[in-house]
Design a protein around this nucleic acid. Structure first.
Lengths: 362, 362
DNA sequence: CTGTTAGCGCGTTCAA
DNA sequence: TTGAACGCGCTAACAG
């Protein structure tokens, strides 16, 4: 009744377990005849290697863990999708652990990964470097993917939120907006704070008064924040939202209130999740090639793991902080530009004018 | 340098490994004093139990596997989200294995799960019962979640696709449509085929000529199919799409072509993914409470596992095929109804009139 | 109450 | 080329 083990196969094939192991793992030197007999026995017994046991003896799980924060949405789906695609190319499985609203929870999740994974992606913005270091007793390879740009010495991939926010404000300015509000992400979230900081800086540089309402990165809060904005005495003709989901919520709120977009108010999001191109008006946003970033993160983690297995340290570049520069994608939620936009780094940006027809992924 | 093991802790605390195990697992009888000493040693050595090793000796991984098909999207994201939430309540981790476009790939993925998980969700519509049975050597608890309604004796959760399709056609009919086309999902996909069959039946019952174009469940194919529909000589005033993503693609295609929805053509989708409520016009669709279905599936799988650990068979109900009945959600992509709609099972349906204001999830 | 020992299923030396 | 024995890290009997 119970699944066959390697010893069952050995007995059936009249050989030792060592030979079975060798034959099945292809590598070593085995007589063609005995190998054939072993394979037949394995087939007959429907033998399937026990990954757990194998992991224990090889100290290699071929599994990677992902520590996610509480909030969910298209951003993380896309990221995981990109990672997953790359993972199977490299022969790895993915184990996800989400819903970590607090730092302790995330730390516990990280600890529970020991002996279960070969490496870890940490996406929880709540957990700070100190807690992380404590939780990481064991030198598990890791790739950090939460906001704090290079504040840790661990390998990481971060988005240039500040630059992206600047580009958003610049674009709104260039298209004629004079009074730009910001619907921010939740306080305490590093990504949200960096985007807010970028907004404040850009506004200060332009000599404009900032106007901030706090949301929580979910679509509902974007809706509510937009209503709050409309209820306030202060006028505005442009809104930069901390992410796309809030921007979509805002778009709907404006629509319900009879406020036209982009004529009356222009809206810019952040992330370029797939939905952004599907709403009307199409959402102008800062594109992060999400799935590709996920793929890239996976490559780096695998690189670390392989390096650790072989030599000592990973190649120099792999221990650095890689930064992803968002790209402004102009759709119809903002008006036509009247002057040249500048990229986050000051050089001419690769601005993408996105046509209506882009909505074909098939 | 290497992580501390239980023996390091035992040595440090001057006790045996057994005592350490007992102290850490809380259960047994240990003197308060020695327990305290052990905990201190564990703390000092930053000891973290090795889940892999523990799994091997307890033959319990506390991990559940999910075998996903190739296509990704909001539907699966939502489902996984629901599962994940429930999983951590039950103390389980989730390991995902996606991108299985063919039956062999899915079977291989299932095999590779041995020794890695305590149970499995199979969502790949490509794998048939025969292959599945072969791959499942080992009596691993499983919950099937692909279209084939009850064709297997394994526990499963299936959507009443046929009934949902009937409801969609009935609704279009009730709102005055006379010529209803169908954008179908990919051939070979059980869900897609069941929805197509339901459409064909309902059309036949109404004495109408069917009109089918095949898509692939992605948004792009919905866009292309709608264009194909418009290019064809045959007129139509309603479209039932195999899923929401294709419906959204179709919506955009109509918009681009200047065809008004719902005035010129009414559109109905299937699934009620989160985006469905966010596009304009709001998409009328058949709601599957996706996250909740995921939660339910998890409960059933855990129920099976616990039953297998304890007694013999799971409770009778857990080995059955549970069916999820989609609920018609009327938004603005279809016109106002002029007569009463009937539910899939013939009784008055719990039709939900969804207001504009529903777009607040916060 | 605690320590010793035997597996869990597999990879991998080391002899033969 | 093959086999016997050990170890991966931990839990669970069985003694003491």
């Amino acid at each position: 009744m119970k699944p066959a083990t390697i010893r069952d196969v050995a007995r059936h094939a009249q050989v030792s377990v060592a030979s079975v192991s060798r034959a099945l793992n292809g590598s070593d030197t085995v007589t063609e005849e005995t190998r054939k007999r072993i394979l037949e026995s394995a087939e007959a017994l429907q033998y399937v290697p026990h990954s757990g046991a194998r992991s224990l003896s090889t100290s290699k799980t071929n599994t990677l863990g992902i520590i996610l924060p509480d909030l969910y949405g298209e951003f993380f789906s896309e990221l995981i999708r990109g990672m997953d695609l790359a993972a199977r190319e490299h022969g790895y499985h993915l184990i996800v652990s989400s819903s970590h609203d607090d730092a302790d929870g995330a730390a516990a999740a990280i600890r529970s990964m020991r002996g279960r994974v070969d490496g870890l992606f940490v996406l929880s913005p709540q957990i700070d470097s100190a807690n992380l270091a404590t939780a990481m007793a064991g030198r598990l390879p890791v790739v950090l993917m939460h906001g704090g740009a290079g504040e840790s010495t661990l390998p990481s991939i971060v988005v240039d939120n500040n630059g992206g926010a600047h580009a958003a404000v610049d674009h709104l300015l260039a298209t004629g907006c004079r009074s730009i509000a910001h619907i921010a992400g939740p306080a305490g979230n590093l990504e949200a704070e960096a985007r807010l900081a970028g907004y404040l800086e850009a506004m200060a540089e332009a000599g404009l008064e900032p106007h901030v309402v706090e949301g929580d990165f979910n679509q509902g809060s974007g809706h509510a924040s937009a209503q709050a904005l409309m209820a306030a005495p202060r006028r505005f003709d442009g809104v930069f939202c901390g992410n796309d989901m809030m921007a979509i919520g805002a778009l709907l709120a404006f629509q319900e209130a009879g406020v036209r977009c982009p004529e009356d108010v222009a809206v810019v999001g952040f992330d370029d999740v797939p939905i952004a191109a599907l709403v009307r008006p199409g959402l102008t946003t800062l594109r992060i090639r999400i799935a590709e970033t996920g793929r890239r993160a996976l490559q780096r983690l695998v690189g670390q793991i392989e390096a650790a297995q072989a030599g000592r340290e990973a190649t120099q570049s792999s221990s650095a902080c890689e930064v992803v520069r968002p790209e402004l994608v102009i759709r119809t939620s903002t008006r036509a530009s009247v002057s040249t936009t500048r990229a986050a780094d000051g050089r001419p940006s690769g601005v993408t004018a996105s046509a209506q027809g882009e909505n074909q992924d098939g």
